[in-house]
Design a binder for these strands. Sequence first.
DNA 1: TCCGGAAGAC
DNA 2: GTCTTCCGGA
Length: 642
Amino acid sequence: MIAYVMACYIILVCNLTLINRPHHSVLAARFAFPEWAYKPESSPGSRQIQLWHFILELLRKQEYNDVIAWQGDYGEFVIKDPDEVARLWGARKCKPQMNYDKLSRALRYYYNKRILHKTKGKRFTYKFNFNKLVLVNYPFIDMGSGRGVPQSAPPVPTGGTHFRFPPSTPSEVLSSSEELRSPGVFSTVARRMARGSVSDCSDGTSTNSELEEAAGADERAVGPDRAFRGLLAPRLPHEPMFRFYGGHPNPAGLARPAHRVHPEPLSPFPVSPLPGPGGLLGPTLSPALSMTPNPHLAYTPSPSLSSPMMSSHFSFNPEDMKHYLQAHTQSVYNYHLSPRAFLHYPNIVVPQPHRPTPEKPATHHLHGPPMPLSLSQQPGAGEDGHPSPFKFKLQPPPLGRKQREAGSSLAASSSSNHSSSFTGSGPIAGSALGGAPPKIKVEPVSDLSEEDVEVTDISEEDELNQNSEDEEGDMFPHLARSRHHHLYNGSSSSPSAPPPPHINPEDDPDDDEEVFKTPATPPPGSGSSLAFPLIGLKTEPGQAGPVSPGGTRCIPLKLRFKRRWSEDQRMEADGERDEAEDKKVRAEGEEQEDGKRDGEEDNGGGRGVILGLMLPPAPTQRRASSELHRATAQLSLENTGC
DNA sequence: TCCGGAAGAC
DNA sequence: GTCTTCCGGA
């Protein structure tokens, strides 16, 4: 347990450190699959290399260009030699009987998972659904912003502003030597694959051999376990803990300062956003570890591991925790975990993967995952507060302003206090809150009718922000889905109807099944944003949150934060914020004054706040941080009261 | 050539 | 969970 806690702590620290890196936002423009994405371990439930990993591997190998190669559309590839590909795959999997028929069946299996889809009308041509792929593995990539992927690509048939393949030649795929120099992107992949394949049948397929060769001894030594251990090792805060995609892996498998790896020529995968210590995404750790943090946010694919964090004894500042939680949340989403996973953080409103709003500079998004943490509407969040995408029911009604203010004096408390508050929110740490059970109950609203929770008007902002690439936007299928239904295959979609700039007209029909619904945000200017009922959050009358002894219902943390923040904002009226923000904030403030609005409004009417991503500019951030601290402290007290 | 169900291995 | 294998159908 201790080790676990330690690891979590380290991750958080690391994240924090990374988050503060100024250049993140800028670099986030490009990213590549994190190395771990290629690791067998990266696929929960699978111990062996996965076919799509293998495909990617082949695609990146110049020598296999005659066998399989990227083709035209973003993420599209053609199997030039099905038999050979099958043979290679079979060799890798020790399935001598493998053939294209079987292989293709496996590929079709990906259809359902939306990792891949067939390019209709083109023989042996498939297309990766990067939205899915990337988002699944890169929870923090803001696909919506369209920055996650190369945007220079030609328009996708679907009409979205899609990523494009770099114009470069396929042959440009990283050469072995290049890989050695910049192993960040794929080199380790190969190694991992080799390791992951772990096939007893060391048949010397060219691929296998190659991969095996590629596998450095050091690399092998760095298993997930190892990596994990590494995390536990003392480390300088500023030292990147994780290898980022695009970064040079060090023997320990940890990130180290590395130069940016250029994107693969035809590869749909952008390069690491982080020029320095690592890419934006792409922690070395496999999701399997449930501790894959990214520079911006702690990435915790598995709530199981992360949950304990909430009850840890570490004192993190609210921001850290916020990031962590965001990451966690994101993980839940990415892994299609039940929203119940969030129950671990009773006081926390579940964030949702989010798309940047038009108002927000893209850079903000780059900072972190597109999931706003209700925990504290960040400064940016407050303005852009994105509705919680999750269908959760917030039960507690808003707290009285008085009450909130009452605790403000304590707000300035130290970080330890914050941590305690956070901790308290955790199931285990319930005691921290005076032993009182969490007052805020966050529940999945899956049972709720979508109508109840979802506002059709997926915020246009969202759409606007959303990457046009959304053609396959699996991550946010729920978003805009109601409005846009595009043909899944680019071929089918009509290019003639390109969406307005930034607007993502397409939503992958395939995504219909997304588990989580994204609350819709009111159309900009509608003014309903404020009135907007809690998006994604629903207060159930019957399930009203716990009532304080005094009969006062507890206000969701999120709401409290938001309100508090709003208040601060108003009070400070610093004017630093741009008008738009001010406006919004004020609106919120007014709303709050209303005293009638409940936490649901918090979602800011879909203002697209991305806590993780939208770290405010340095100055603002600082202030926000302090506010958060205060708020946290206050909330802590409040919760206790509840 | 492609699809997808079904059963089963791991 | 991720294929692998088999197979009928389009």
